[in-house]
């Protein structure tokens, strides 16, 4: 199956010369439909850079990022914006819900920006709300919802429409463990239904919901899906 997201030899360097910081070094990664990939790593390991590149919010210094087969580097600003609205859904730790819009309006907004009529947008938003277990609360404003409910709205917004790629950056944020688990179940369900997902987290308990867990260390990916190291690999003297 063709991957929804593909990173080929991606390097991202901030700054130049001696002060250059290599956020990512030659990272390659493919995420197929129905696959959830978790990326773990300490702060500053390049997790968020990877997510920003995957969503076209940042451009690589070298290498290529493809979403649904289209190389992001070859797209105009306008095409890129369209792809971001239509194909990519984001769930951030900071929820970025617009406080002056209701839950329903927050979810319908990206569809309307993309040219869907108000009625069709609201219908899709209502379905998305239903899916995250918030049917009936669409008329509430963000500050009338609990933290967990707000996070569900943010997820519904990320998943509404035909999003094929879901990018989540610490989506369980400050939620308690029960609510956090509900959010991950939701993400898992959507990915099982055919989306591709990338989940950035520093909590192993959350990463464990993924099919594959990648460790990012100093900008380099270590894939756990590969075979375990052989005993002789662990002894320097045997090499």
């Amino acid at each position: 199956m063709n991957p929804v997201l593909e990173l080929r030899g991606v390097t991202r360097t901030h700054g130049t010369g001696e002060t250059a910081v290599h956020a990512l070094r030659d990272v390659s990664l493919a995420v197929a439909p129905g696959e959830l990939v978790a990326v773990m790593g300490p702060s500053g390991s390049g997790k968020s850079t990877l997510l920003n590149l995957a969503g076209g919010l940042d451009r690589p210094t070298a290498g290529e990022v493809c979403v649904e087969g289209a190389s992001l580097g070859g797209l105009s600003k306008r095409q890129l914006a369209r792809l971001r609205r239509r194909s990519v859904g984001y769930v951030f730790q900071a929820l970025n819900l617009l406080p002056s819009l209701t839950a329903m309006e927050n979810i319908a907004l990206p569809l309307e920006l993309d040219g869907s009529g108000p009625r069709a947008s609201r219908r899709a938003a209502a379905e998305a709300l239903d899916e995250v277990g918030l049917d009936g609360l669409g008329g509430r404003f963000p500050d009338e919802l609990s933290g967990g409910q707000q996070q569900r709205v943010a997820i519904a917004r990320a998943l509404v429409g035909e999003r094929r790629l879901v990018l989540a950056d610490e989506p369980t944020g400050a939620l308690d463990s029960q609510t956090g688990e509900a959010v991950l179940r939701l993400l898992r369900t959507r990915v099982d239904a055919g989306a591709a997902g990338v989940l950035v987290t520093h909590e192993a308990r959350h990463a464990a919901w993924a099919d594959r867990v990648l460790f990012l260390r100093d900008g380099v990916l270590v894939d756990t899906a590969g075979p375990l190291a052989r005993p002789e690999d662990l002894l320097e003297s045997a090499q």
């Binding site: 990463a207 993924a210 867990v213 756990t224 190291a229 662990l234 002894l235």
Partner: peptide
């Protein structure tokens, strides 16, 4: 002669799979 970082990484991979 023991690559401690490799020992840590191998254990972490195994523990992560168990957690999954």
């Amino acid at each position: 002669g023991v690559d401690v970082r490799a020992v840590v990484q191998t254990q972490r991979t195994a523990s992560m799979r168990m957690l999954q």
